[in-house]
Amino acid sequence: MKNRLKVLRAERDWSQQDLAEQLGVSRQSVNAIETGRYDPSLPLAFRIAGLFALPIEQIFEPEEDVAGRD
């Protein structure tokens, strides 16, 4: 899954550690999500969306092959 987490974080001038602390997760988690190595659970995705005050689909979007199945 692709995401705009790094851009959104940079817009607010937050470090990965800053974001991790606000989400209550490790910096490694933020890094793994940002780099697309790990897709967060739905509850964590909602926490991220709530923090940035954006709908989930404006932060995360499925890869093209997954989106094309519908």
């Binding site: 550690q17 991790a20 989400l23 209550g24 997760v25 490790s26 910096r27």
Partner: peptide, 8 residues
């Protein structure tokens, strides 16, 4: 050292 209060 890396936890820094974020719960990790």
């Amino acid at each position: 050292a890396s936890g820094q209060g974020c719960g990790k």
